[in-house]
Design a protein around this nucleic acid. Structure first.
Lengths: 152, 152
DNA sequence: GAATCTATGTCAGAATGCTGACATGAGTCA
DNA sequence: TGACTCATGTCAGCATTCTGACATAGATTC
């Protein structure tokens, strides 16, 4: 069935490979988070709040790479289910600082273990040098994509 | 920086950085494809068909990193709009080999130029060595994620 | 030849994320 | 002070993708 013919140009594209790697990572994370009833964005939100308590909806959205509308829907669900808390009124401006509840922290702990195992697996077989290379290279890609937006 | 013993430090996590890079790439591609009325998956499908004519729905889905159900919906729309053709009946088994129409090929040409410019921008400032390093490292990540299935 | 397994195409419903839009609060500037 | 710009929170509608399910064709096994 698979007539895997000659090599294909897509196989030499770094963009395609980046997408493939991201897809593999996402799939692996979904696999370990599904038994916990948690999506990747769900986990990302909790992890962000654990490391930077008091983040606003918009800041969380940027950190999880979704729109603030999407994060707002998620936060409302998390608040309703008692994983996070937000003040009824904004202390300053319209920004509502969000914090994890003990329940949210407990839920995150299990997820963190699962996600860390995925990251460890991903890095298996990579040397320290390769890991720092990867870091530098990915940062370069991100910077070039975002910065070189407007020729000038 | 704040440590969360055993946790995943987002500032130093390669997984998080990979997601960030992928997000930046996707956003950049969407920006240049939107004026052409084309989504990333839409483009991926056409590009795959250009390089490997006759791919089936399931094969296209794997190549574009979506489910075969998702690709099926897209293919029906592309067929309806005259970008691709599929035989009414399967030559063998249930597999329906898909091919680009001249219209699909023309549409792809514009998109390819746009997407290539994004990839060029992403690689700006990277040496040949860094690019080959990136290739090897990303391939390693993909292999480790898919191979080491269970590591509890 | 029959049972079984795997892969495929497809339909239907649900989940997730996005764009558009609006009102509001804070900062900037004349 | 008032006009302007920008960021934020939020509601609504739409787009995209997913999971679940089913029937069918080919391969495998006995």
């Amino acid at each position: 069935m698979s007539q895997n013919g000659g090599g294909v140009d897509l196989e030499t594209s770094l963009g395609y490979l980046l997408k493939e790697a991201s897809s593999a990572l996402r799939t692996a994370m979904e696999e370990v988070l599904r038994p916990l009833g948690m999506s990747v964005t769900h986990y990302s939100c909790l992890e962000l709040l654990a490391q930077r308590p008091g983040l606003s909806n918009s800041e969380l959205a940027r950190g999880a790479f979704v729109t603030r509308q999407t994060m707002n829907v998620l936060l409302q669900a998390l608040e309703r289910d008692g994983y996070v808390t937000r003040p009824a009124e904004a202390p300053v401006g319209k920004v509502l600082p969000t914090r994890l509840t003990p329940r949210g922290r407990r839920s995150l702990e299990k997820a963190t273990v699962a996600v860390r195992s995925v990251e460890v697996r991903m890095l298996a077989g990579m040397t320290e040098t390769e890991q720092s290379d990867a870091f530098r290279i990915l940062r370069s890609m991100i910077h070039s994509l975002r910065d070189g937006n407007d020729g000038t």
